[in-house]
């Protein structure tokens, strides 16, 4: 049964300060949690005592100002950041859509980029083979698929990246903003794909500044401020 349980999760990391001529008082960033002192070291408290439970069918919207900890929380859920405290229990296959362009190489063809993207996503050779035509069809790139990625227009590159990134069968889907790509007609197709993806996933966690989108897609809303849960509704 797909589920996510976070119990008092915190993330504290040491701030490695670069040499700067700025006065010490001006080095603090207004973004990204709380900066505090721990002995002689500066540390960032990116998440502080975050707890919630999600079960199959839940769609959680993460909201809050820049630096509230939305992306950090997504990366903790995905396993990129290891929490400093608390416990996380996740049941189900987790996929994430953070940066759809990751791993794309300008010199490689579109087809080769699909293979590389598949390998990075942990697909087997058979899965890559199976998804190849679906991705090419969805991207509508036609013969361009065998040209180098650098020859693509921005819209074409976005179509391929979107098609490859959203060919997932996740049980838990983590998204940092809703993804759209390409021209108006492709945008509509992309919207349908995202809706389908959301429909298929057991649990969705979506970080966004778009309140209307959160209301449309999500069933729960968690507001973060300075790394702490302000409200969960």
């Amino acid at each position: 049964m797909t589920s996510i349980t976070l119990n008092n999760v915190s993330l504290v990391y040491r701030l490695f300060e670069k040499l700067t001529l700025s006065a010490p008082g001006r080095r603090r960033s207004a973004l990204g949690g709380n900066i505090a002192k721990s002995g002689t070291k500066q540390v960032v408290q990116a998440l502080d005592g975050v707890s919630f439970e999600l079960k199959a069918g839940d769609r959680l919207g993460l909201v809050g100002p820049n630096g509230a900890g939305k992306t950090t929380l997504l990366k903790v859920l995905y396993g990129i950041y290891q929490p400093s405290g608390g416990t996380i229990s996740i049941t189900g296959k987790v996929d994430a859509l953070f940066n759809i362009h990751i791993g794309f190489r300008p010199e490689a063809t579109g087809r080769r980029n699909i293979v590389l993207r598949g390998l990075i996503s942990g697909w087997t050779a058979a899965e890559i083979e199976e998804k190849m035509e679906e991705i090419i069809d969805f991207s509508e790139l036609g013969d361009f698929i065998d040209l180098p990625f650098k020859a693509y227009s921005q819209g074409m590159a976005a179509r391929l990246a979107f098609a490859a990134a959203t060919t997932l069968e996740p049980e838990i889907l983590l998204m940092d903003e809703w993804i759209g790509a390409g021209d108006a007609s492709f945008q509509e197709k992309a919207k349908r794909r995202m809706d389908e993806l959301a429909e298929k996933a057991g649990i969705i966690v979506l970080a966004s500044h778009d309140d209307a989108l959160i209301r449309r897609v999500c069933t729960k809303k968690l507001t973060l401020r300075a790394g702490r849960v302000e409200s969960l509704a």
């Binding site: 990366k75 396993g79 940066n99 990751i102 791993g103």
Partner: peptide, 9 residues
């Protein structure tokens, strides 16, 4: 960096 910050490889 982009891989380390964006994937769990």
């Amino acid at each position: 960096a982009s891989f380390i910050q964006g994937t769990t490889l």
